[in-house]
Design a protein around this nucleic acid. Structure first.
Length: 657
DNA sequence: TATCCGACAATGT
DNA sequence: ACATTGTCGGATA
């Protein structure tokens, strides 16, 4: 292993690479392994981890198969037995060009090169059957392969790996055809593997192309959420986005999508990337996709799946694969899933069947639902929060401490029946209770913590006895269109909850409970709204439109709740819904256990736990009634629900202007 | 190590 | 003033 490392770090010139190759034996080196080994070396080198995630071969195939390989294989099948067609196909392949604008150590380029050489050999074999010749000289050339990479030495690795791949294919050719082979040496020219910042370089200068050229871009560019981007990276995005608003709130990979779309605009070129799935969820969709879809369109996609490769430290990230082509292209598009695929007329930016509709944040519900708000947020480094034991202790030490303590419920407490409490004081309370050292110490720690923090936390450092953000029942009493409702209550919606559930548990609570910012609250709401929020209709919307935390649900007021279309509900239907959601709440109590237990994890990849069957039945009953409010016949699946909701959304938003 | 929520900084309106 | 998101982060089974 150290021998390989030596090769890369110390032999850069062409002659030395050849020497090294002969030394270690070209045919013994697997470029995939070489690549992944060098990745490991790279991550030990602390200069940069960005763009250095090694893409597994199956994932590379998911990119290049639909992008161009499937089509070539199909052409080949059609050309079999026809010399002219076979030669035409070869001619076409020789003209194709490829660029990975974040090539790392060149995995995509290597795999593509090998696939090309193999297909070329298959074509030779077919031609041999027709004209009995065995004199075929391969013409697929390393010069057709281009790349951009920011790490100096990764560029060297890419070049070296391409040479090795070339040599391996020459040996494979020899095995198949005996004497006929192409010599590896002297080395053939590799296309431009450029060292530089892909978001700053002009891609047309690296790989110039004409309108009708068959050029394909692919790769796995780096992902980085906006809050983790460096100043330079933000500047990169600003440079690429130009006049586009909100460049500050998109993932770093968006820069590659934008540049690639500009590159293929008005040409036959296409591109496909492995990407973080967060660019197709939540607020990023509205920030990024209208700009892409005005100049290009999605031609295929693999919606969210878990990233994996054979490296030790698998990145914990959910990815998608998206293929893009020119806006003029007609014909069906393909949505790939784990074990099947679906042909559709168009793919929406949420990576489901649908048009280009993008859901934009709204400050008020488009369906006139009562206002939803985040819970209260401490920013206290845990110092204002008490567990049960700490509360008991304080009760023993401080008289009347309960007057400054509230029961606090967030997502975890709600889903797992846990108990937590918070110190909830105003200035007068602190004047009274600050004389107790137990309280004073906690409050001082809050002050210190906030002072060390960023601007917004510092601004409340001098009121350390209070939560950073206080939300109270009294502040939220509004008059809404709830005159038909029998009952008014407060609804709790967990802000983060497992994506392995069929339904996101929603609950009700009394006004003395403090809701923490890990949950959301609708104060003073009609009971039927609990039913609407618990329905599969709403889940379909949440799944598609909401942001995610890894693969879990992340509820958002402005993006999910305020944009959710609800049709006019008759009093009779509201009553029906209230009866059925009442039934669900009863069953939860009767069956016992926590909500996490009751709802299980039926969609988990490993060890799925079933949902309580009685509860599931009750939810299905509710779904029937809610579904009817939207459509008079049954829905085939969630895709159909989403399509209807998006249509409704567009109509409602347009009508409001 | 797969699962499942938590909390804070940066950023926007 | 207040909401949103993370090649996030930590706890737990």
């Amino acid at each position: 292993m150290s021998g390989y490392t030596f090769v890369v770090f110390s032999k850069k010139s062409r002659n030395l690479i050849i020497e090294a190759g002969e030394l270690i034996g070209w045919d013994k080196v697997n470029p995939d392994i070489l690549g992944s080994m060098l990745q490991a070396v790279a991550s030990e080198d602390k200069r940069s981890h960005l763009g250095m995630h090694y893409t597994s071969v199956p994932n590379i195939m998911k990119v290049i198969n639909p992008l161009f390989l499937d089509d070539l294989h199909k052409e080949f099948e059609k050309a079999k037995g026809n010399e002219t067609k076979l030669n035409n196909l070869l001619e076409r392949m020789r003209k194709m060009k490829f660029m990975d604008p974040a090539c790392g150590s060149g995995n995509f380029l290597i795999i593509t090169y090998k696939e090309f050489r193999r297909l070329e050999m298959d074509i030779f074999e077919e031609l041999g059957k027709i004209n009995n010749s065995t004199m075929y000289v391969p013409t697929i050339d390393l010069g057709q392969f281009y790349g951009i990479e920011i790490e100096n030495f990764a560029v060297d690795v890419t070049r070296l790996s391409l040479y090795i791949a070339d040599h391996q294919m020459n040996l494979e050719l020899k095995r198949r055809y005996g004497d006929v082979l192409r010599e590896t040496l002297p080395l053939h020219k590799v296309g431009d593997i450029r060292c530089g910042n892909a978001l700053r370089l002009d891609w047309n200068e690296v790989l110039p192309h004409e309108k009708d050229d068959e050029v394909y871009l692919f790769g796995n560019p780096p992902y980085l959420g906006y809050s983790l981007q460096s100043k330079e990276q933000k500047e990169d995005l600003k440079y690429v986005c130009d006049s586009i608003l909100n460049y500050r709130r998109i993932d770093y990979i968006s820069g590659w999508f934008l540049k690639a779309t500009y590159y293929i605009n008005n040409s036959e070129a296409k591109y496909a990337f492995v990407t973080t799935n967060s660019i197709n969820q939540g607020e990023q969709v509205a920030n990024l996709w209208p700009n892409l879809l005005s100049k290009s369109q999605i031609i295929f996609a693999y919606p969210s799946f878990k990233w994996s490769n054979n490296a030790k430290n698998n990145a914990g990230v959910i990815v998608s694969i998206i293929g893009m082509g020119s806006i003029q292209e007609i014909g069906q598009k393909t949505l790939f899933y784990e074990k099947m695929y679906r042909k559709v007329n168009s793919i929406s930016p949420y990576l489901a069947e649908g048009d280009n509709t993008v859901v934009v944040k709204k400050n008020k519900s488009i369906s006139n639902l009562p206002r939803i708000t985040n819970g209260s947020r401490p920013v206290d480094n845990g110092n204002l929060i008490l567990n049960y034991e700490e509360l008991i202790q304080l009760r023993n030490q401080i008289p009347n401490v309960d007057s400054i303590v509230k029961k606090m419920v967030g997502s975890r407490e709600f889903l797992h029946n846990e108990n937590r409490y918070a110190l909830w004081m105003d200035e007068n309370d602190y004047l009274k209770f600050g004389k107790y050292s137990q309280i004073k110490e906690r409050v001082e720690k809050v002050r210190e913590f906030r002072l060390k923090n960023g601007k917004s936390a510092r601004s409340v450092a001098e009121v350390p006895w209070a939560f950073f953000l206080r939300k109270e029942y009294n502040n939220n009493i509004d008059i809404y269109n709830n005159s038909n409702s029998k009952e008014m209550l407060n609804i709790l919606v967990p802000r983060v909850s497992s994506g392995t559930r069929l339904y996101m548990p929603v609950g009700i609570f009394n006004e003395n409970t403090l809701i923490s910012d890990s949950a959301m609250v609708i104060y003073n709401a009609p009971f039927w709204l609990v039913g609407i929020l618990s329905s599969t209709m709403h889940m379909a919307w949440l799944r598609a439109i909401g942001g995610k935390l890894k693969s879990d649900f992340r509820y958002s007021a402005v993006l999910v709740y305020n944009t959710f279309p609800v049709p006019e509900l008759s009093t009779r239907r509201k009553n029906e819904i209230e009866e059925l959601i009442g039934n669900i709440l009863d069953i939860r109590e009767e069956e016992g256990g926590t909500l996490a237990e009751l709802y299980g994890s039926p969609l988990a990849a490993k060890n799925p736990k079933p949902m309580n069957p009685r509860l599931l039945e009750a939810h299905k009953e509710l779904d029937k009634v809610v579904d009817r409010a939207y459509k008079s016949t049954d829905f085939k699946d969630d895709n159909e629900r989403l399509a209807l909701l998006l249509n409704m959304y567009s109509e409602m938003v347009n009508k409001k202007g």
